[in-house]
Structure formats: structure tokens, C-alpha cells
Nucleic acid binder design. Structure first.
Lengths: 192, 192
DNA sequence: CCATAAGGTGAGTCTGATTCCGTTTACGTG
DNA sequence: CACGTAAACGGAATCAGACTCACCTTATGG
């Protein structure tokens, strides 16, 4: 089923056009753009959209996965350049800033972190792994507590990414991030 | 517009029936029950449902608001019985347990905490206030840091309530709660 | 060039929320 | 206890938006 033949030239072109139109719509913040509109602005008919993407959600997922993939390359770089707890701190703030770029990415992150939708399984796994790498490095260095897993931390961050568009949300997001980091620090006073 | 005349007897009866049918459906976990089904199981036609509730969402909100109101009476009791930081701890765990009762409440809390939907403005405000009371008491007693607001904490908890149905989610939820509490403790090492 | 399979089209279907108006009913009044 | 009337109700009709399918168009490899 996967990759039978290479796509025909026009098909590949249309697929790209669709993804690009969808990216523009979704990352621009308009998360509930109609499929018809996406198809139209890609210069194709809905039938074509559905030839390339199983459902509307599948298209959404494809767009967001690429964004998440980008983000997930960051931890390795950060770990090379910084102490583990600092790398962790920077990564979390990076998430916030990405969410800040536009409402769109925030919606993506939220969907990924705050739902169980199988549509985002893949992205969720990648993010979880990225966080796990950071946490492991930190606890190996003794600066981060070792009883929190990547996926759990991912869940904890869910709320941060739901803030878009509130007055003063960026500050609030940073504050929550800090709060979580403080809780993660090795030697934090533990709740009874 | 608000409270012109008292509702006619049959109207009040139907309204109650609708709310009760909706509560049963939503809190039972089936968050996307069709309006037709709710109306039917309340023994009423859709037209009647729409006479009482502007939209489907409005009905959802009404159901959830009541649950949230219940929950929001807890902090005062807890503050009477326990030291502020303990009261805070218990309240957060109470949230988790409420989410545990069934997926329904979890969905409610998630919607409330993790979105900006004006539909939940009211519930969100109440929860924010409840948390503020707890935080204020804690920081007055010097056991809780004073730079986190109720609404911010509410946001931070958003992820916790999105866990329902995952394998082992209850443990994960408790762990995240603990993590946040640790970050809140006065004297926690602060992130740089 | 042609055959033909891959790809595209868009009107039509389906599902579910919301509306609208004719009918029924509660209840204050004489 | 009728009766009039505003308030409620019912439910078929409408609307919205995702998704399908039977038929047409076009790359492409031989």
C-alpha cells in the first residue's frame, strides 16, 4: 500500500498545492476553514482533495506533523550546547514561542498535547520522545527529578498551548512553563 | 430579557427533563450525543429543546456549569479544615478525582480550562476564583509562592483533564498535579 | 501517436444542527 | 366553569458542511 508508484506529476503538484493552502489557512489561525475553501484556494476540486487525504482531519494532521517535526529536532541541538536543565528550559520556552508565532501552531500543539485523537498519535509520540531525551539527560546529570516521563510532561504542557488569543497570554504561558520547570527541578520540595 | 415571568409549569418540567437527559448523556461520557436523542429521551421534540437552549452548546454549558459550581464550593470547606497548602493539594486532587468519575466531567473540565470558548466563560471564572482563594490563603501563610494567579493555575491544569481514557491516566494525572504543586511551593528553586 | 491507468471533477448524498409556523395547552379572568 | 390568549410544543423543512461516485481528462511509457 505505501508508495506503490511515484505520483504522477500533476498529482504531486496538486498535493503540494493542497498542503500549502491548508498550511496557510490553519497556521494563519483559521482552524475551521471548509474543505471546499482549501480546495478552491489550491485551485482544485474537493474530489481531488479527497483523493489525496482520507478526511479533513488527515489533512490537518499532515500539516501539523511537519511543524512538529521541525520542533522536535531542537532538543538534540540544545543538549549539545547547554546543560540538560538549561536545554529543557529553552525547549519549553521554544514551544511557547512557536505557539506565539500565530494561533495556528498553538492549535496544533494543543490538539497534540491535549487529546487522544489517534490522528495525532504520531506527532504526540515524537514530542514525547523529544521531551524524554531532555528529561533523561537532566536526571542523568542529577539536576532534574527522575520520576516524570516525557509523555507525562507533554500532558502537563497541554494547558500552556491553549492560551492563544487571551489578553496577555504570552506572559501567562511563560509563567506556567516556569512553574512546571520549578516543579521538575531536582531537590524541589516534594508534595506530601 | 432575563426572568420576565416565571416559567409556565409544563415549560419548567420540560426544561428540567432536558437538563437531566443531557446530564445523563454528557456526564456518562457520550459527549457528542445528538440533540434529537437528548430531546427524545426527555420526551420532548427538538423544537422544545431549542426553545429552552439557544444552541446545543448552550445546553452543554448549562449542564457543566452546575458540576463546576459544586466543585467550587469545596475550597472554602477545605480552607476551614486544613492549612492552605494542604487545602490546595486536596483541591487539585479533587479535580482529578472528579475527572475520574467518568469521562464526562473530564471533558467538561477540559473544555473549561483549555479553551477560550465564551460558552464556558462563566465556569472558567468561577474556577479561577476558587483557585485564587486557595493561592491567596497559601501565600498569606507563606507556604505558597505569590506570583501565580488563579486563572494561570487553571490554565496549567488544562492538560491534566485531557487524559481521560488513556491507559494509566489516573496515575499520570496525579503525577502532573504533584508536579505543579511542587512548583508552587514557596521556596521551590526558581528557574533562572 | 495511442492506449490506458492515474488523476480530476463537482453535483449529489448524508448526517446532524437549527428554524419556522401551525397546533396545543396552561392559566388568569369574568 | 368556560374562554381568550400568550406561552409552549411538535416536527417537517431547511441549512451547513463533510464526504462519495460515476464520468471525464490527461500524463506517460511503449
Amino acid at each position: 500500500m505505501p508508495s506503490s508508484r511515484p505520483l504522477r506529476a500533476d498529482a504531486r503538484r496538486n498535493r503540494e498545492a493542497l498542503l500549502s493552502a491548508a498550511r496557510q489557512a490553519f497556521l494563519g489561525g483559521d482552524t475551521d476553514t471548509h474543505v471546499e475553501d482549501i480546495a478552491r484556494s489550491a485551485g482544485v476540486a474537493v474530489g481531488t482533495l479527497y483523493r489525496h487525504f482520507e478526511t479533513r482531519e488527515a489533512l490537518v494532521e499532515e500539516v501539523y506533523r511537519k511543524e512538529v517535526d521541525d520542533l522536535c529536532t531542537a532538543p538534540d541541538d540544545l543538549l549539545n550546547r547547554h546543560a540538560p536543565d538549561e536545554a529543557l528550559r529553552r525547549f519549553l520556552l521554544l514551544l511557547v514561542d512557536h505557539a506565539a508565532v500565530g494561533r495556528g501552531m498553538s492549535v496544533a500543539l494543543e490538539s497534540i498535547m491535549a487529546t487522544d485523537s489517534p490522528v495525532f498519535d504520531d506527532a504526540r509520540t515524537r514530542m514525547g520522545d523529544a521531551l524524554t531525551r531532555l528529561l533523561d539527560a537532566g536526571s542523568a546529570a542529577g539536576t532534574v527529578r527522575d520520576d516524570v516521563s516525557g509523555p507525562t510532561l507533554l500532558r502537563a504542557l497541554g494547558g500552556v498551548c491553549a492560551l492563544r488569543a487571551t489578553e496577555g497570554w504570552l506572559d501567562e504561558a511563560r509563567q506556567i512553563t516556569t512553574l512546571i520547570l520549578d516543579g521538575l527541578r531536582h531537590g524541589a520540595p516534594r508534595a506530601g
